[in-house]
């Protein structure tokens, strides 16, 4: 099996790492990371995994000479191959790229591996790794090489780590859900299931803004297609929701809220509910003296955040 020493011996190096999309004028907006990333997609919000496909191309260089032979991982006359394997547990799928074969005689290898991902194929993340396989066994292996893997399809290991492609990340999606309720249910509500805000993630299953799309005011809330920055009603709802969110947090976890309020030390996980609350209060300088002020400053901030074209800070 491969270990780091083996990798060092062959001088494995990833070269270019490119993304593209078949839709004209659409770029996957990756963060320009090199292997092994992580790579995030859809920065500008134009490319998205539902409507757009993804082409990926990576070039790697290495000198595999030391793989072959008794001290290596494969028989001297075997043919090996390098391939990009991908798995996506959240999408229940896995697969691989083209395989680039090489032998001991190949000298320095430059392998370009391609992958194409369909639109509407993935959710969450896809993990990529560069793996080596025996492609063609050595028909007459040396006696000293008999312990080596020598059958096609046998996996020799992977190099260079695992690259994560983020198709959807929790942190890029505000927990928001539309649901079909009854017309005389409320237009919006807050769902708050968490009991441990420092651990529980700020995701839709824990905390959520739910909009009832069968409420008669839904058209007014939604506004006209293509309307920039949402409708006035949306701003009001978000401001109210944020206020309720903080209040419920305060009610269920007063100690956590105290720390947030006084800006004293609080330990929380990345992406947790407390993380978001902390960010909200501190970045936007929400007045926490009393409920009135809190609500007032929140309202102001929300309006500002929307009207400014919703830019990131």
């Amino acid at each position: 099996m491969l270990d780091r020493q083996a990798a060092a011996r062959i001088g494995w190096m990833p070269e270019s790492f490119r993304f593209s999309c078949s839709t004209p004028d659409v770029d996957p907006e990756s963060n320009g990371a090199s292997w092994p990333g992580p790579v995030t997609l859809g920065h500008q919000g134009i490319w998205n995994p539902v409507e757009h496909d993804l082409f990926l191309e990576i070039t790697m260089r290495f000198n595999p000479a030391t793989f072959f032979g008794a001290e290596g991982i494969a028989c001297s006359n075997a043919a090996l191959g390098i391939v990009l394997e991908w798995t996506s547990p959240e999408s229940s799928q896995r697969g691989h790229s083209n395989i680039v074969p090489f032998r001991r005689e190949s000298g320095k290898v430059k392998a370009t591996l391609f992958l194409r991902f369909d639109r509407n194929q993935f959710r969450g993340q896809v993990q990529l790794s560069a793996s080596f396989y025996v492609v063609e066994p050595d028909s007459a292996p040396d006696s000293a090489e008999r312990h080596l893997a020598n059958r096609s399809g046998l996996c020799l290991g992977s190099l260079g780590g695992t690259c994560s492609l983020f198709f959807d990340g929790n942190g890029s999606l505000f927990p928001f859900v539309e649901y079909a309720g009854l017309p005389d249910d409320a237009l919006w509500r807050i769902r708050y299931e968490s009991s441990d805000p420092c651990e529980d993630l700020f995701v839709a299953d824990m905390v959520c803004l739910e909009i009832n799309n069968r409420h008669p005011d839904y058209p007014a809330y939604k506004g006209v297609d293509g309307q920039k920055g949402g409708t006035p009603m949306e701003r009001q709802i978000v401001a109210s929701w944020l206020t309720m969110f903080l209040l419920i947090l305060k009610e269920r976890n007063p100690d956590v809220f105290e720390c947030l309020k006084n800006d004293t030390y609080l330990k929380f996980s990345d992406g947790s509910i407390a993380h978001f609350a902390h960010y909200l209060l501190s970045t936007f300088q929400i007045n926490r003296e009393n409920l009135q002020n809190l609500s007032a400053t929140l309202n102001k901030v929300v309006a500002g955040q929307f009207l400014d074209g919703a830019g990131t800070l």
Binding site: V83, H96, I99, Y133, V134, R151, G153, L154, C155
Partner: peptide, 15 residues
């Protein structure tokens, strides 16, 4: 654990 069917002899069918 050790074998990838599509790369083995005869591909997936052979595997």
């Amino acid at each position: 654990i050790a074998t990838e069917p599509s790369f083995s002899e005869g591909g997936t069918v052979g595997y």
